[in-house]
Design a protein around this nucleic acid. Structure first.
Lengths: 213, 213, 213, 213
DNA sequence: AATGAATGAGCCTTCATTCAT
DNA sequence: GATGAATGAAGGCTCATTCAT
């Protein structure tokens, strides 16, 4: 019977994680403004001043959450892809890891995606993260097209990239509200959508808007 | 019957619209919690008790915003599609109207999509709106597939629908931050993505996840 | 029986004075930091938010106190001296008014002199006020000496001025703790001290420090 | 018996002095309330519980500062005067030592004079110190006058004494903000002011207030 | 002897909301 | 119809102080 014998007086590193866990939970549930430091402290089983001592202001605390969850997500994906994976399997493993992250760390995803978006202090940084993601996707598309000798307008590439990112986020969000759904199924569908999008751009067989009037 | 004859003592309906305009502006800029009734009243050029008298509580005011902007969006789309449009043109005109709405009523879109999402009191209703939208899309897909005699798993249909909705939202959001972008270009790309997704489901030529191990 | 019939809902100007009265009282009693906005509001017979609405932050409130009491003091003195008083009577009437102010607005003096001094945010401005006062005094001394054709080191003038200002302040402070003392007696003594100081600088009959060793 | 052999594990007395040094520094800079025990401990290079263990409560710590600096000042002055100094030189040496103390232990002076004054818990004791000082001065004046066979009202004596004390304090405070000023110059001027004041009381050649009206 | 960990209490500030004029 | 005046309630943040190691 020697499981976690100590109750109080835990080392700083442990407490910080507990607090971040609680903060992510509460921010996910309430949103940034509606969350109170009192509730976070209580949820973490610790007094408020400790939260301030270790993680600082409410805003800093929220940023710390964003950083931890963001880093966790990126590491999850990067770890799944690894350095040696052949290019045609990278997308699948990346998406699989992404949806896996969302299923496992649901609150982290909600904080990153639903809550940080509308709050002016954080929305900017989040928008930049998304922009980088879209850039990566656009880069992938571009390389594929170049390899086939086709050119596409830069704007169309960017738009296509944002559409793919948005589709993935939407599915992730769908998953966040359905704990029993299968992340891998989402990844599979998403791979299909992505390949098709690339094929379409590749083949040039596109639909054009009708002439007005 | 002169034009805008008076400045004060406006009829109630006009005043209400002014207030809602101000509220949408402020909510879009600050988010629900960070927006203060003071700022909204000031932005509307009206005293605070008036806001309460006409539109009730802050929460009711926010809901009124959601209703007006949501209705405006739906009407814009419905009006563009109309009753007599041949099926294969409905998607294009619908998307065109959708992105047109976002470009014209940017703040309304931001309130609907970015702000209402994270706030527990409203998130539910918003989620339901999205769900209805996804259902409509899924219905369209299903009809197309049935017409060709193909069956697809219900879940896959739902997922595909959410992906399309998410892609559209992502592009709308992209548009909201780029006032000079062309809504019609987005609509065109989005039509392509949607048709192709349908084709893909139709042809059955799908990618399958590799066997694990 | 028509004395002050209204109890609540007073016009802004009245309430502001009530609040400033209360603030001066409390700041005088407790000092800037130890004074709580709660106590000030209660002492003013009003709720805390009103204080914030009318006078702003605690720091701004304190500054408002300094301004009102400082202005009151200067006006009292300027009013007593007036424009037409012959030069040899200005000192007496000025000092009389000064000590009169201290006796009448004891708390105002305490806030200005005892409390504002140690608090870094305000000490600077107060020091500048004193410096201006010392300059005025130094100017008076200089003119008197010049009229007699005598020269004195600038530093000695400044020092003498600060000594006179300090002496007056000390007497004012003495008076602040003795409600029954006679302000005019202080003014009389102070005039004597000041004239003597001038005479002394004038006559050149000064004491010199002994040679060291 | 090497010089400053160790860094930690210093004997208690030394540690206490370090803490008091830090406390005086911080109290001088911030004032009693604005100073935090954290800052004091950090400035002393020691952990907070040590401060509590050695010097007790914040209030007790402040009192310890007052005591040390007050004692230091008195000893400096008493040591400069010594037991055998002829009466007519006591004033000069006393003032010289006083201004020397202020120049050397500037922070101590600021704590004693600027900070302790407004804080109710300490103001009383400080007022008593000043009162004793004024008594001493008044005693000196009285003896001088008695030796010449003149009588002066007790209150006038007390007032004159407070004026002299205030003048000295004002010059000390002037010195505290001008690190390069010469303390001896201040002492010289102050002696002149004091002698003259005595002479004036002595000679009876005083100015009288004009009849009112 | 020395300190990291921990907290109760309090203060400044703001906000949604209402009342009396 | 319209508004200045007013407040209960709550939330962010800090601080003096102590305990367990």
């Amino acid at each position: 019977m020697s499981t976690t014998p100590a109750f109080r007086r835990l080392p700083r590193a442990v407490r910080e994680q507990q607090m971040l866990d609680a903060a992510v939970r509460v921010f996910s549930r309430r949103g940034f403004h509606a969350a109170s430091m009192d509730e976070i402290a209580e949820d973490a089983g610790i007094s408020k001043p400790m939260v301030y001592a270790y993680l600082g202001t409410k805003e800093e605390l929220f940023i710390a959450c964003l950083h931890r969850e963001g880093a966790r997500m990126l590491e999850t994906i990067a770890g799944a892809i690894g350095p040696d994976l052949p290019p045609d399997q990278r997308l699948w493993h990346g998406l699989q890891a992404f949806f896996g992250f969302v299923a496992t760390y649901r609150d982290g995803w909600v904080v990153l995606y639903r809550q940080a978006r509308g709050e002016p202090p954080f929305a900017g940084e989040l928008a930049m993260m998304r922009a980088r993601m879209a850039e990566v996707v656009a880069g992938m598309l571009k390389r594929t097209l170049h390899a086939e000798g086709r050119e596409v307008r830069e704007t169309d590439l960017e738009i296509q990239a944002y559409a793919l990112v948005g589709a993935s986020e939407s599915l992730a969000d769908w998953l966040a509200d359905r704990p029993d759904a299968d992340p891998d199924q989402l990844a599979t569908r998403m791979v299909n959508i992505a390949w098709l999008g690339a094929d379409q751009l590749l083949s040039g067989e596109v639909w054009h808007r009708p002439a007005e009037g």
